[in-house]
């Protein structure tokens, strides 16, 4: 987890420096805000990963000498198939059409999105391994 964290913290450090240089040379607020935002985008997950790295040490995928057996156990749960992403996608499709063409698309859009959110949650609960 260390390298992963350092990549993101590197993003934060680089954009922190660039943001500071940019602000003090241009005093332009739009670009500075975006650079500061990018710095935070690296800092928040980067420091979180680093904290986890300090807590749990190296995982099998972080150790160059790990064997396949070291990763034994459950990896994760993967859905075999699911209709709900399609339903949610079509709901989002109708939602944007509502903005472009008129509000009559809005009601089926909300209906599809809510159905999909309930459906996907129920599916995850039934699976038992979220």
């Amino acid at each position: 987890m260390r390298i992963e964290a350092l990549v993101l913290i590197g993003v934060a450090i680089f954009f922190g420096i660039v943001g500071a240089v940019y602000w003090f040379t241009s005093y332009e607020d739009g670009g500075t805000m975006m650079l500061v935002g990018t710095c935070l985008l690296g800092l928040l997950p980067g420091s979180y990963y680093y904290w986890w790295h300090r807590r749990m040490g190296d995982r099998p995928e972080d150790r160059p000498d790990a064997t396949v057996e070291d990763g034994a156990g459950e990896i994760a749960t993967f859905p075999g198939s699911s209709i709900w992403p399609f339903v949610l996608g079509m709901g989002a499709f109708m939602l944007v059409l509502a903005f472009a063409f008129g509000m009559w698309f809005f009601f089926p859009a909300v209906g599809l999105i809510l159905t999909a959110l309930v459906g996907v949650t129920a599916e995850s609960r039934r699976g038992g391994h979220v």
Binding site: V68, G73, E74, I75, T77, P79, G80, G127
Partner: peptide, 8 residues
Amino acid sequence: MTDLINPP
């Protein structure tokens, strides 16, 4: 429907 994946 879900698959529980054990490591290869």
